[in-house]
């Protein structure tokens, strides 16, 4: 992982991505309470959602990078970006749309691709891991569109039904 500065705000054609803020919490809690969070172990109550969101925000402070909140016309619609729990392995890349109304329009792909380009082009990151439960076919499709390669690596204990993709700089 490089020490080159990861920007706290990125722009794409239709979206702004920036580090989490207090004003995003309500939308995130609504997502956590909805069946949409079932792919990542939810639904979660407001207290658990608060904890999860503080962890997302604090990751930026502790590591100097983290997951961004995606904004469409000023509305927080999801999160996207790198997560690193263990420095000895490649960071994980995640993306989530919080509200189904924003699905099917390419927002997650646009956001993930913008973040990946920044990390590889500007920050010289080389590799990331993507874990998805195979039922989440839309998310698998995004990983493939980014150029990620499906591996046969075993699922981690904390995400037992997931498959692992690897994304390398220069792919696609």
């Amino acid at each position: 992982m490089s020490t080159l500065t990861v920007q706290q705000m990125l722009n794409s054609e239709r979206l702004i991505m920036r580090a989490p803020q207090a004003s995003d919490l309500q939308a995130y809690q609504a997502y956590c309470a909805s069946p949409r969070s079932s792919f990542v172990g939810g639904p979660f109550d407001t207290a658990k959602a608060f904890e999860k969101f503080t962890a997302m925000a604090g990751h930026w402070i502790v590591r100097g990078f983290g997951r961004y909140v995606m904004l469409k016309d000023g509305i927080a619609i999801g999160h996207v970006g790198p997560l690193c729990m263990d420095e000895s392995v490649a960071p994980e890349f995640t993306w989530t749309l919080w509200d189904g109304a924003y699905e099917g329009q390419g927002y997650a792909t646009e956001a993930a691709s913008t973040v990946w380009q920044h990390l590889t082009n500007d920050c010289q990151w080389k590799e990331m891991v993507i874990r998805i439960v195979p039922d989440n076919t839309k998310s698998c499709r995004i990983a493939e569109r980014l150029g990620a390669i499906l591996t046969d690596e075993a699922a981690p204990v904390w995400y037992p039904d997931s498959v692992t993709y690897r994304l390398y700089a220069g792919a696609a």
Partner: peptide, 18 residues
């Protein structure tokens, strides 16, 4: 792993609550 999350939460609490 949970301690790591805990540390992130402690730091992130500053972001959400000031």
């Amino acid at each position: 792993e949970l301690a790591w999350r805990n540390m992130s939460q402690e730091a992130g609490h500053w972001v959400l609550q000031g």
